[in-house]
Nucleic acid binder design. Structure first.
Lengths: 187, 187
DNA sequence: TTATTACCTTGCCCCGGATCAATACCGGCA
DNA sequence: TGCCGGTATTGATCCGGGGCAAGGTAATAA
């Protein structure tokens, strides 16, 4: 819980009363590997701050799963479309490692935005951060071939290569498991 | 200018004094087709509201140009990485059609966020909107083949097919000009 | 008008990378 | 200890789609 507050404070000091309010409402959850935080069909009505561990987000596409992101300790995450529009999610959020998260519900967050207008600043900055990541990822994927995409991941988030099973990395990078294995073996 | 204010008001009523302030600082620009709004190497220090017309954003990659977005009347746009981090841009913003935009500088916008905290709400909602678009685009591109990507564009923004030269659409969809032509001819 | 420069289409060849299938490599558990 | 399901490698085959080049058409210039 302190890590969450420290993180938010580092973006901008929190308005008076908000830390106390957060203490009241924030929920803590513990996940073992393969446990689900969100299943497709449900609405993503909570935002998560990852205290420890690693999550993946994926959607079924035909008979395979395609991964849209990995988030680790210190990250804030949601199923983007489902959260922003409060509609049924096509994505699942699942723990890869033993994971500990803190959550705030959508309703409560909207209430916070109303009661503590200054917190919109923080919300905006966080949204900008992940928006930027999304764009950078798009740029890295667009019209590049598989080994270049792999190299990009190696340079931008090398930890993932160690912590995430290869098959998930493959769909994240838009290539087959086989191709990823080949790339890794050649040097 | 009225269209901009109406648009912002539709997200949330603007705080007292802000409309007047905007009238003072907003710049109007007119672009003929092929005119540049931003060139790579420069810092994107303005955000644009498109009153009329159509823009494309692209980066050089080797000897070709790859397109990262198209924005039209009613849209708000920036070169994402350059704007958020205030670093040199790798992207160019160029007019496709005769285009009219209103702009606000980065400095001025930060000032607005400070002087009118309620405007952070609006900024957050706009950021969320384009973040969602970016994610949806990623999802549509990931592990899909070219004709599926084309169909996605046909369904999500059919106007673009009519207003944007095919070669730009091709790089936007991550395929060659030739492939796009083939897809279009087969029915 | 003709010349010039885009831009789009078509055909051919070839390569990156998907798919399938078989094998090897675990870690968990009875 | 040996069986087992899930995961990673390796090889063989095949195809989507890229690259290149040539013609066609439309738009702009002279």
């Amino acid at each position: 819980m302190t890590a969450l507050l420290t993180y938010l404070q580092s973006i901008r000091p929190l308005p008076d009363g908000l830390p106390d309010f957060l203490h009241q409402i924030v929920q803590r959850k513990l996940l073992v590997p393969k446990a689900y935080l969100l299943r497709e069909g449900d609405v993503c009505d909570e935002v998560y701050f990852i205290q420890r561990g690693l999550l993946r987000c994926f959607a079924r596409q035909g008979r395979t799963e395609v991964c849209s992101w990995f988030m680790k300790e210190g990250d804030v995450c949601i199923a983007v479309e489902s959260w922003f529009r409060q509609v049924q999610s096509r994505e699942n959020i699942q723990a890869i490692e033993r994971t500990e998260v803190y959550s705030i519900s959508w309703r409560q967050l909207q209430e916070i935005y109303e009661r503590y207008p200054a917190f919109n600043f923080t919300g905006r900055v966080l949204t900008e951060k992940y928006y930027l990541q999304s764009e950078q990822r798009l740029a890295a994927m667009r019209l590049r071939r598989s080994h270049e995409r792999y190299r990009w991941l190696m340079e931008s988030s090398p930890e993932l290569l160690l912590r995430v099973p290869a098959k998930h990395l493959a769909s994240y990078l838009g290539m087959s498991e086989v191709m990823l294995s080949n790339i890794r073996s050649r040097r």
